[in-house]
Amino acid sequence: MSQTLSNSTSSSPVSALSGPEASGLPVVPEWRRALNKFLGHRGLFIGSVILGVIVLAAIFAPWLAPHDPYVQNISQRMIPPIWHEKGTWEHILGTDKLGRDYLSRLLYGARISLTIGLTAALISGVIGTTLGVLAGYFGGRTDAVISYIITTRLALPVLLVALAMAALVGGSLEMVIILLGLLLWDRFAVVARSTTQQLRDAEFIASAKVLGASTSYILIRELLPNILSALIVVITLEMAHAILLEATLSFLGLGVQPPLPSWGLMVSEGKAYMFFQPWVIAIPGITLMILVLAINLVGDGLRDMNAPEGRN
């Protein structure tokens, strides 16, 4: 952490010299500056590398996985991972209580976590951004009604509602995605509302109005691109949030149903063996932690990168 800090402070005087004060002379192309900033930001770099590896593993799971993640083999139950003396190269991360290959299940599990994280964050992103932008732009009664909806949503304990709803409608991958998508939009709405309020009276918006641009043009083409950087940070936060909630729901048996290899479900299935075969729950648990950490690093990094440079 201290290294990241010293790194960013040592690089800032350089960018201050070469960047904004150069009065419009094209010193460094835009993408070059972005690339330098990206490489200079250690957290963002590490986070994106880890996230990239997990995404690639998820995409190429069918090719990477040494075994079928669903095939059970009673004679090969609870084989420990390779670093134990009883481990075998046949099952690098061992097998679970039904003899299914743990590495293969982990790889396929990455697909579930990422799918849920991304789609739930996108659904809630669309809902929250729409509500927030409308409230912020129109103000008045629209704002009052939408703010009331946001407050109502904030008053709901997410986990409790998710549990109740999951218990009511039954768990499945699609249900978990829709449920989380419908629950996690509050931060999008709050951020979209306040950033829109800041920009509503900007003169470039007034200029577009005088030109006779339609309200939808103004909202989508003039306003939205300017609040997107703030929303991208929220997307990463809510992705991590959704992934953890899915794991929680699945752990409690109310989320993704067996035999799907969700990481939360794997932790849940391993909990009976926690004391004598701790790797059964350590492996999916640690992977989950690394994924959430990587997403948060990327989110923090994007926020730092989007911090305005000079007057903007």
């Binding site: 900007a202 003169e203 470039f204 007034a206 200029s207 577009a208 005088v210 030109l211 006779g212 641009a213 043009y217 003039e222 691109p225 300017n226 007057r311 903007n312």
Partner: peptide, 26 residues
Amino acid sequence: PIFQDPYSSLNPRKTIRQIISLPLQL
């Protein structure tokens, strides 16, 4: 119109070319 604050009257996410040609497009 020509507004007071040239720091707020141009959309920061558009190129100068896009900004000047917007009236023609609309």
